[in-house]
Nucleic acid binder design. Structure first.
Length: 422
DNA sequence: TCTGGGGTCCTAGGACCC
DNA sequence: TCTGGGGTCCTAGGACCC
């Protein structure tokens, strides 16, 4: 048996833990640059705020109902997430941290320990709430996909725990879930399924296996099995997927960028972040991809988007080297005369740093580079991000982002710790 | 005026090997 | 007239997730 624990409007809940005035009020959390809504309280949803809504389109709504609006505070959310996960670990060490706000747990046998699956579900919620302040929903079922169905059902019925264990309860649940709400069915597949007369999860579970495989590959087939109670998606515990297979950094610009130099400065900044992430997980990259694009929402602008991948001669985690090749890639795809809105850097082909294959004709002094990167990471960790930086990043600050109102780093910075007083 | 950022997995097809 | 069979590796592109 699996359980999924899903935090309710996680970012909003994190803010509410440290600012109880926000309880029962419409609260919005915004994306980078305060561009769009990425989390909202039920009160805000009820007033018509949709997930992903651009802020400028709902300004009236915000002021009319005096909504509380916050920029995202990932230092806080990340730390709160860790607390939630630690709490869950006290129930079972068999945990898959699936995202910042949800986790799967292997709960086999725990029904006896807690009396019933329902009681286990409520215990999970209660403890997380008590230890972290974050409200959650719990789904318990024989497969991961069915636990997700359970969460949907709970949301729909305004409940907090949903157990799907016998054929009847599963069948009933599947009938009430439209195909597009199945975990793993996105827009494309949903449209295709509707065309084929399959409207809800139950219809899908009754479809012919070969037909599913033919049109939706093994991914679809696994979902099909999972909905029928046959577990195909194992718990992926931390150790198995601790290391990322691809690492990236990208930003949308506040104002469009029209000059190559400015794009280069932005890319140098992204390469710096990517380099830091690489060294943190002790990986080296074999290729680097750069992409740039204009504002796709602006019809009047001429549109251009392109990407270029460069194979590196030797796998590296060295920031200046990443920057060097990123610039090469940019030179290939850059076109003058466009207003660029977004750029990004991706690295892939990651290998463990200690197994990096050397190149016979490589004349870089790699040991020296490794030491200089180590020194840079240590200084920046102590003195602040980007205190030591590549000149290529420039000092133009075109990489700056807008953050209107952001709460304190209550849990990760002594300067910003919450004060309790008169 | 103003629309986020960061990931995973699978498949088909090309290039290559014996 | 007739030209095999079995395999690996890599990449681009498509689908999906939070």
């Amino acid at each position: 048996m699996f359980a999924i624990i899903d935090c309710n409007q996680f970012y909003v809940s994190c803010e509410r833990v440290f600012n109880p005035k926000l309880e029962n009020k419409p609260v919005l959390i915004l994306s980078n640059n305060d561009g769009c809504v990425i989390a909202s309280s039920p009160e805000a949803k009820q007033l018509g705020v949709k997930m992903g809504a651009p802020v400028f389109k709902i300004r009236e709504l915000i002021s009319k109902y005096h909504m509380e609006v916050y920029s995202s505070n990932y230092a806080l959310y990340g730390d709160m997430s860790k607390r939630v996960m630690d709490t869950l670990r006290s129930f079972s060490p068999d945990i898959e941290v699936y995202s910042i706000d949800e986790a799967f747990l292997n709960v086999s046998g725990l029904d006896r320990q807690y009396g019933s699956w329902e009681r286990l579900g409520h215990q999970l919620r209660t403890k997380v709430r008590q230890w972290t302040g974050v409200p959650t929903r719990v789904g318990i079922a024989p497969t991961k996909t069915l636990t997700k169905i359970g969460i949907h059902l709970a949301k729909k019925n305004g409940e907090s725990v949903c157990v799907l264990k016998d054929e009847n309860s599963i069948k009933k649940a599947l009938k009430s879930i439209p195909v597009e709400d199945i975990w793993g069915i996105g827009r494309q597949y949903a449209a295709f399924l509707y065309q084929s007369g399959i409207k809800n999860a139950y219809h899908f579970s009754q479809a012919e296996e070969n037909w599913v495989k033919q049109h939706m590959s093994v991914v679809g087939l696994r979902l099909h099995h999972e909905l029928r109670g046959l577990s195909c998606l194992p718990l992926e515990t931390i150790s198995e997927h601790a290391n990322k297979k691809m690492i990236g950094s990208s930003r949308s610009f506040i104002k469009p960028i029209c000059h190559l130099v400015e794009l280069k400065e932005a890319l140098a900044t992204y390469c710096t972040r990517v380099g830091e992430k690489l060294r943190k997980q002790q990986s080296c990259a074999n290729y680097v991809t750069v992409y740039i694009r204009t504002n796709r929402f602006k019809d009047v602008d001429h549109q251009y988007a392109n990407a270029q991948t460069i194979q590196l001669p030797v796998a590296t985690d060295n920031t200046p080297e990443l920057i060097h090749y990123a610039f090469q890639a940019l030179d290939i795809i850059y076109r003058e005369g466009y207003r660029y809105k977004k750029a990004g850097v991706l690295v892939g082909g990651l290998v463990p740093a200690y197994t990096c294959q050397q190149n016979l004709f490589d004349n870089e002094n790699r040991q020296k580079h490794i030491k200089s990167m180590q020194a840079m990471d240590i200084i920046n960790a102590k003195m602040g991000r980007f205190v030591v930086r590549s000149a290529a990043m420039g000092y133009r600050n075109s990489g700056e982002t807008i953050r209107g109102k952001v709460s304190n780093k209550y849990t990760s910075d002594w300067e910003e710790i919450i004060e309790v007083g008169a």
